[in-house]
Amino acid sequence: MHRTAVKQVVMEGVLDANDALAQANRTQFDEAGTYVVNLMSSPGAGKTALLERTLERMHGKLRLGVLEGDVQTTLDADRLSRFHVPLVQVNTDPGFGGECHLDANMVRSGLSELSLNDMDVLVIENVGNLVCPAEFKVGENTRVMVYSITEGEEKPLKYPLMFRSADLVLVNKVDLLEHLDFDLEQFLGYLDAVNPGVERILASARTGQGVDEWCSWLEERGAPS
């Protein structure tokens, strides 16, 4: 049998399919008038803790909803259930490549359980991972990164992808500054090196420092006009 080799030009973006779905999600958010935050960080940086503080403060001010992305458990969703806000848990696919981030399709699968029309702001807590979530748009209006000072100063230089894609960096656990030899100035310098002038708020979900500032940031963008 004769085989002919052929070459075909493709020029197709690897993430095009995801981006198209993200755009569809975005259209749905826009139609409902819901502002969507993609909240990203390494595991344990304090996303859920900050969400708890946020839900406490925003009660009666801003109608919040939460989509929790988690690998297998419902622990984070359980921590937030006492706030009685619209809440849905999306467990990421344990199969190929689905564990480390939410993609547009996974978020889409959670949306049917949420009444977007009753929500000013939807916060999507992404899976804890310092690289993967940054590659996958889910239809968000903004990207907020939580960074814990226990992670060291040099991470922006080693993992620039997420730091570069963030619109706001919440530098969390600053209550521990006096106990660690974390050099805040050096970290902020590295942050500016990869994302010059990016907005930042020094925060502690433990003491509440910076939480008001973060809530105002959110209100400015998410309050119904």
């Binding site: 085989r3 080799a5 052929v6 070459k7 075909q8 030009v9 493709v10 197709e12 973006g13 690897v14």
Partner: peptide, 8 residues
């Protein structure tokens, strides 16, 4: 992005 493919 995927630039091109070679096929048989």
């Amino acid at each position: 992005f995927v630039e091109s493919l070679e096929m048989e």
